[in-house]
Computed example of a mutant assay.
Amino acid sequence: MRLLILGTGHMANAHARNFIEIEGVTLAGAVDIDKVRAEAFRDKYSFERAFTSLEDALAWGDFDAVANVTPDGAHHSTTMKCLAANKHVFCEKPLATNYQDAMEMAETAETSNLVGMVNLTYRNVAQLQTARLLVTSGQVGKIRHVEASYLQSWLVSKVWGDWRTESQWLWRLSKQHGSNGTLGDVGVHILDFVVFATDTEIDEVFCRLKAFDKADGNRIGEYQLDANDSFTMTVSFTNGALGVVHSSRWATGHVNELRLRVYGDKGSFEIQHRHDGSKLFICLGDDIETASWKEMEAEPVPTNYQRFAEAVGQGRTLEPSFRHAAKLQRAIDLATVTEVDRREHRLGSA
Score class of each variant (00 low, 15 high):
148 A>R: 12
205 V>K: 03
285 G>Q: 04
344 E>D: 12
118 V>D: 06
42 R>E: 15
327 K>A: 10
346 R>Y: 13
122 Y>T: 11
209 L>H: 08
14 A>W: 12
140 V>G: 02
92 E>W: 10
190 I>C: 06
113 N>W: 07
50 A>E: 07
100 Q>G: 11
267 G>I: 01
2 R>I: 01
176 Q>H: 08
215 A>E: 11
237 F>V: 02
165 T>P: 02
334 L>M: 15
63 F>V: 07
35 K>C: 02
338 T>Q: 06
96 A>H: 10
286 D>V: 10
46 S>M: 14
175 K>E: 02
170 L>T: 02
54 L>S: 08
90 F>R: 07
313 G>M: 02
5 I>H: 04
81 K>V: 06
118 V>R: 13
25 V>M: 06
301 V>Q: 05
52 T>N: 15
230 S>Q: 15
275 H>L: 15
169 W>P: 00
49 R>G: 12
139 Q>C: 02
237 F>W: 12
307 R>T: 05
318 L>N: 01
141 G>M: 09
275 H>A: 15
129 Q>V: 14
166 E>N: 11
39 E>H: 14
69 V>K: 00
66 V>P: 06
47 F>L: 09
308 F>P: 03
187 G>E: 04
290 T>L: 05
5 I>C: 08
120 L>N: 12
79 T>P: 05
242 L>W: 13
257 E>R: 14
42 R>D: 09
103 M>K: 14
302 P>Q: 01
234 T>M: 12
135 V>D: 00
168 Q>D: 07
242 L>G: 14
56 D>W: 12
172 R>F: 01
259 R>V: 10
120 L>C: 10
208 R>N: 15
203 D>M: 13
287 D>V: 03
38 A>G: 13
195 V>L: 06
44 K>A: 15
